[in-house]
Nucleic acid binder design. Sequence first.
DNA 1: GTCAGAAGTGTTATGAAATAACATAACTTG
DNA 2: CAAGTTATGTTATTTCATAACACTTCTGAC
Lengths: 160, 160
Amino acid sequence: MSGDCHHHGEHDHHGLRGYALARALEAAGARCADTQERLTRPRRRVLELLLAADAPLKAYDLIASYGDRGEPAKPPTVYRALEFLERLGFAHRIESLNAYVPCRIEGAHMAAFLICDCCGEAAEFEPDFAPHVAAAQAAGYELRRLTLEARGLCAGCRAR
Amino acid sequence: MSGDCHHHGEHDHHGLRGYALARALEAAGARCADTQERLTRPRRRVLELLLAADAPLKAYDLIASYGDRGEPAKPPTVYRALEFLERLGFAHRIESLNAYVPCRIEGAHMAAFLICDCCGEAAEFEPDFAPHVAAAQAAGYELRRLTLEARGLCAGCRAR
DNA sequence: GTCAGAAGTGTTATGAAATAACATAACTTG
DNA sequence: CAAGTTATGTTATTTCATAACACTTCTGAC
């Protein structure tokens, strides 16, 4: 994952811990309740792992760390949970990494990421997609989803 | 691939044939010669398959149809060729499909696609990436690559 | 309550996508 | 032509994702 550079162990990230994590999970539960969706145990667990992580997680990272005491999950358990989390906008898949991150921007349905090839950080940002939406419409296109992934080096890794 | 709809066989596409294909391959060869790169046999063959195709091709589609008389290629043969073609800008990988298309826009290094979930068509277009590049720079980011993938329904499939 | 349907989960197995590692061949350039 | 580099051939393996089916848990109508 964060393997393209020589800064192992020097990267500072932003995974949620303790109260912040609990609050985020509770908020997700509340949003589910609003929409008649169920934040079941495996879904909640996968979301928890994503929120606590310092970087995008691969499906098999989630599978490996799913159990409380090291027992892995079965793949479908995790893939189903991810599908749910994506559908509700709690998580995004980063296609160019085959990895997942929790959604950091409330209500953002179109995901855009700045991905650092060095430290693996994937910063979600909110670009103005209006021109692209307009271009799609001009082409007669009915748009359903849109993702933008930018790869490069983050400020921290450039400086080092 | 084009399996999300009920219009099988009704989709019109744009793969190159005959002279057009030959011309495109020749042009690619010329561009390689300019830059001291070698358009070797497997690279040329993979590019030919991409150019002739009516839709994005998966790596294993290429592997299967690689041989003149039905003999498949070995995976590394095709993956190496694809890596080369991407590096030189002759092809793009569409991350959300795990598939490849020939580059249809001369000199476009940043790829953007309108992908139809119905017919599988992937139309390359050239959006204005300047705002995103600016946003990345504002964040201290050194940009290397950028891809945008929009999913939805093309005009033809909406009409049907 | 309880029954029928829908939604979700557990489990086994398999399929699809990509790469590691190492041996061989082909170009280039001094 | 010899040494270095670049590309290919080949075997094996790893990584990523889903199919299929049995079982459980919710939900709402009665």
